[in-house]
Amino acid sequence: MMQLIPLLFLPFSAFAADAGNPGDPGLAPNTMPAVSPEFDFDNVVEKGLREHLPLTSSTFKVWDNGMIPQDCKHHVESYGYRATDFEVVEVTYADCEKPWIMCRLKGSKTDNTRMAETFGRMPIGMRELVKHVMIMEFDKMKPAAAYSVADIIAISDEFYMHHIFTHELSHSLDSHIEVPGVTPPNSGGFSSTKAWKDMFDEDTAAISEYGRSGWPENLADSGVVALFDIVVPGGAGTINPNWTSCFHQYANYKTAYGHVVTPGVKLNCTKRVDDSPIVQAGDGKSNGNTTDEGGDSSDSDGNKGGCHNGTHARVGIPTRRISRPRPLAGIKAVHSGIFHNVTFVHRVQ
């Protein structure tokens, strides 16, 4: 049976915005080793999320009017693509009247149904904090498998997975969602507060090796385990014998965001972020038409607003190293944990 509300509520410290750079030596969550064995995000966790997150029904339309969201155009061109290399897909979910405009590289193995379904399994309280989803080639994005910035998520075709979405969307929660009594009113930034760090110190292991690299990544990987713990019968304890060593991290996440991420609690979008403007993809003239493919994902398996959306790439290899990507024009890369965080995880050769 799905756990509808988190059963554990951990006490929060009074608000203290400990806003130092989490990436500085001594301030990252690296004072203890990662849990051992590590959670198998790519296989066991992914399977649990795919099988137990409820699918929100959706329909999609493929645009053929030569138009594309401005932010999609900007990002894909920064990677050497032409905007016309991308299929623009309008996806409408049953829990939100406003559709999402997604940009999928033509020829991707992730088809439009899977693109809509995977995102559609994410709880609406997370999904509504995203402007656009993009799918690109890993060969173009590498060493990144995914990134998020300015309320946009780009994922490589090879790694279009539920647990990666959960990680990226956890950065969105960290950016946008107020934690009463902890973050300033109407503000996010939970990962940089004393309340988050104090609960980390209650554990004997970090949630993951990648979660030791910075406080936002610690929160985001904790979010993956937390969502698994909420939706999969038996929770995290069924997949890791040493779950108690990192328990306070994912329990703290559930206490802060359980009302947002637990399926069946938040039912409709109320904070849907605004899309970027629609512009011409190339030199062609707009004819104002869309092509309805009749896409329906209900039965298949399968800044502008200011945002600290950290980025993440989970590539199924236990040893990872972190570096800065080449900057995208017009996007300011600043310290991890502050707004516009851009961090890539390398595939180790």
Rank of each mutant, 00 (worst) to 15 (best):
M1Q: 04
L4I: 11
P6L: 02
P6M: 02
L7F: 14
F9T: 14
A14C: 09
A14G: 07
A17V: 12
A19M: 14
P22M: 10
G26V: 09
S36K: 11
P37D: 10
F39N: 03
V44S: 03
V45C: 01
E46Y: 15
L49C: 11
L53I: 07
P54E: 00
T56Y: 05
T59D: 11
K61S: 06
D64K: 03
N65L: 00
G66S: 12
I68H: 09
D71F: 06
C72V: 10
K73G: 10
K73Y: 09
H74M: 14
H74S: 07
H75N: 12
R82S: 12
R82P: 05
R82I: 11
A83C: 03
D85Y: 04
V91L: 07
Y93V: 01
D95Q: 05
P99C: 15
I101T: 14
L105G: 11
L105H: 15
G107S: 09
T110Q: 14
T113G: 14
R114I: 12
A116E: 01
E117V: 13
F119L: 13
R121T: 08
P123Y: 00
I124A: 02
G125A: 08
M126K: 14
E128A: 01
L129C: 07
V130M: 00
K131F: 14
H132Y: 09
H132K: 00
M136D: 07
M136W: 08
D139E: 13
K142I: 05
P143K: 03
A146D: 14
A150H: 00
D151L: 03
A154H: 03
H163M: 02
D174A: 00
D174S: 00
H176C: 13
H176S: 07
E178N: 00
E178S: 05
P184M: 03
S187N: 05
S191C: 08
S192I: 09
W196R: 00
F200Y: 15
D203E: 06
T204I: 04
T204Y: 11
A205C: 06
A206F: 03
A206H: 02
I207W: 02
S208C: 04
E209M: 08
G214C: 03
G223E: 02
L227V: 15
A236I: 10
A236Q: 11
T238G: 09
I239W: 01
N240S: 03
P241R: 14
T244P: 06
C246M: 13
H248L: 03
K254P: 15
T255R: 10
A256H: 08
V261H: 05
P263G: 04
C269V: 13
T270A: 11
K271Y: 08
D275P: 01
I278E: 13
V279A: 08
A281K: 06
G282I: 05
D283K: 12
K285W: 01
G288D: 08
N289D: 13
E293Y: 13
D296L: 12
S300F: 12
G305D: 10
G310L: 01
T311E: 05
T311C: 04
T311K: 07
H312N: 08
H312G: 15
R314G: 15
R314F: 13
R320I: 05
I322P: 02
S323H: 08
R324K: 10
P325D: 08
P327Q: 15
A329M: 10
A329Q: 15
K332M: 12
I338E: 07
F344G: 09
V345M: 06
H346P: 02
V348N: 15
V348A: 11
